[in-house]
Design a binder for these strands. Structure first.
Lengths: 365, 365
DNA sequence: GTGAAAGCGCTAACAG
DNA sequence: CTGTTAGCGCTTTCAC
């Protein structure tokens, strides 16, 4: 009856090798505290038994998991289908694996982020799309976990990584204005209705994404003001941050009899959607309609015409967030850090002067 | 000194509420075993203290983690930058969240998949790009974890989800042959050099991806044979499964004086790379060169010309893999299941008869 | 309805 | 160099 289907425990190894559990533990964790031969013999026995220290038990005693959490209010499946997250995750992943940490994605479970956080076994978390006003932030901190915010600086005592949304937006709007556009439609990101079923938590309220929207909108406004113009609120329509969302928003604007010569979209996906919708209406881009996106996802440079957009270093955002987080995780005494990364306008083929007057910028006024 | 910075434990709640630890546990896990008022009071105290059951301790006693692992030999960062995985992960994620499980990505840590698996705290794993000959498979099974293989049926006693690679490849090749092509270049996927540093494990050998390659190649051959032709091994060149890899492979073939009128690429990314390389050489697609991909990633239908390719249900593959896995996880007695999904050729704009004779298929013979 | 006590599997003082 | 022992924080029989 010595054979057992279940996983061998440390005691089994100790018994077979004729040593104490301590010795076995040392053989794995501090071999230098054992004679070479003892350590070798123990490892052989362990090997032959197929023994591996149980990771959960190990976490419990070591009080660390060697895993980092990526917290998002979005459903897991959108995290993986969204090109923005593809880049962000890539950056996160690169930093995590460089330091030997695993990655756990913390997304609503049965609609509840609170339960998801409650279950997370991580040493620290990077949160994106979340800020001060969210109960989740308090929960993570209450759990004693280091937390770094991305795209929000709100509880200032937390580490953060943000980009210059305002400056990027300003540059985008200024570009259009310089080209001579005056009838500019703004496609804003509406707060996504979080997965939420009718479960206990999730009084989601204004998400941090709203903060990004506000910053970008402010940038647009500043550019208008600098040019002595004003951004008419009626020309700001909100939609979901996706291709379909952008298309729908553009159509809605059109149905409201807005006839823009240019579009400022707060995301590339929305920009692409607007282009699609405009084409369906018979408009040519950029001749009849100029479109500027935001983010500079991979696709932006591959579509035709290539999308003029505001580049933000998404990968780097993820990478730096993990770097800041690990500093806190590994030296709990270290001060929290704040990072602000640059954005820059990339002019490609989707923008031109209004009225199809070719590629040469000229003031139509 | 009652205030403590660290996380409150169950004993703290018990003490403050004036009950035993058991009662506190019951208040959370089996409230029906407590009087309503006791349970409520305990929960209030817990709330006020900010108490949350420690997830690791919980895992240890419950002997389940409510998390599933996704095992891949690729580095974490490639998992997120690769469009194939984007789709696969989406399917995985959808199924996992539907059942309330978290997802952990198990990728080499410091180059070692073995340590990564050793650390994984999951109730089961879906492995892709791995099969019988890999030590990792044995390790996972040794840990007593249910395991479902994707793209391999090799240890037949394991659950599996595969697609009809052979049939898809056959259809792709047949399509080209019917169009009249005879000089067909095959772009095969070469085994990726796993991340591996010089660390202990990773005698990686032929990866399961090799199996996919073999199946697709066999499909191509069958189509050739059915047409009374033969696939010349000299016309099969291998490259990395990426855009750059495809471009490089095509250039290499060109440098070896191969002058194909068509390309069969084992992945869409490679196909796209081949198109790029061909264009750089002054060839027009599909007039001078027809290209067929494999997989049908999102991008395939968005490029110009849209890519003719073999569609495989990548999302579904992920979704089903988790479904099969959960069946095993939740009813350990249940039999392992095997699933084979269909593929189908999707003809778009990147294929035409050879010699630029327009879009109408005609036998050039 | 409530609590005492025995683990879950491992680590790490502390002795010897 | 090796073993004893006491936890890590929670769950869960089993008595009361």
């Amino acid at each position: 009856m010595e054979r057992r289907a279940s996983r061998p425990r440390i005691a089994d190894v100790a018994r077979v090798a004729g040593v104490s559990k301590t010795a076995v533990s040392f053989a794995f964790n501090s071999p230098e505290r054992l004679s070479l031969e003892t350590a070798d013999r123990i490892r052989e026995v362990a090997e032959s038994l197929g023994y591996r220290p149980h990771p959960v038990a190990r976490m419990l005693t070591q009080r660390r998991t060697m895993a980092l959490g990526v917290l998002t209010p979005q459903a897991l499946s959108v995290i993986f289908s969204n090109p923005f997250f593809a880049l962000f995750n890539e950056g996160i992943a690169r930093a995590a694996e460089e330091h030997g940490y695993e990655l756990h994605f913390i997304s609503p479970i049965h609609g509840s982020l609170v339960t998801a956080i409650g279950r997370a076994t991580v040493d620290g978390v990077v949160a994106i799309g979340v800020s001060a006003e969210h109960p989740e932030v308090g929960q993570v901190r209450g759990a004693g976990l280091p937390l770094v915010l991305v795209d929000s600086e709100d509880p200032p005592e937390l580490g953060s990584v943000v980009v210059d949304d305002e400056g990027g937006a300003r540059a985008a709007a200024a570009h259009l204005i310089e080209l001579g556009h005056r009838d500019i439609l703004v496609l804003a990101v509406e707060a996504p209705q979080a997965v939420g079923d009718a479960s206990a938590d999730a009084p989601l309220g204004p998400r941090a994404e709203a903060a990004v929207t506000v910053r970008r909108l402010r940038g647009y406004e500043q550019a208008f003001e600098s040019a002595g113009l004003a951004l008419d609120p009626a020309w700001v329509v909100a939609g979901r941050a996706s291709i379909d969302g952008g298309a729908a928003a553009f159509q809605r604007a059109w149905a409201m009899d807005l006839r823009p010569t240019a579009v400022l979209a707060m995301g590339d996906a929305m920009a692409l959607g607007a282009i699609r919708a405009a084409r369906d209406l018979g408009l040519r881009v950029p001749n009849d309609l100029s479109v500027v996106g935001f983010d500079d996802i991979d696709l932006a440079s591959h579509v035709d015409p290539a999308l003029t957009t505001v580049h933000q270093p998404i990968r780097q955002k993820g990478f730096e967030a993990v770097r800041l987080l690990l500093a806190e995780v590994e030296q709990p005494a270290s001060p929290v850090q704040h990072l602000r990364l640059e954005t820059r306008l990339i002019v490609r083929g989707s923008t031109a002067p209004p009225h199809g007057r070719g590629e040469v910028p000229g003031t139509q006024q």
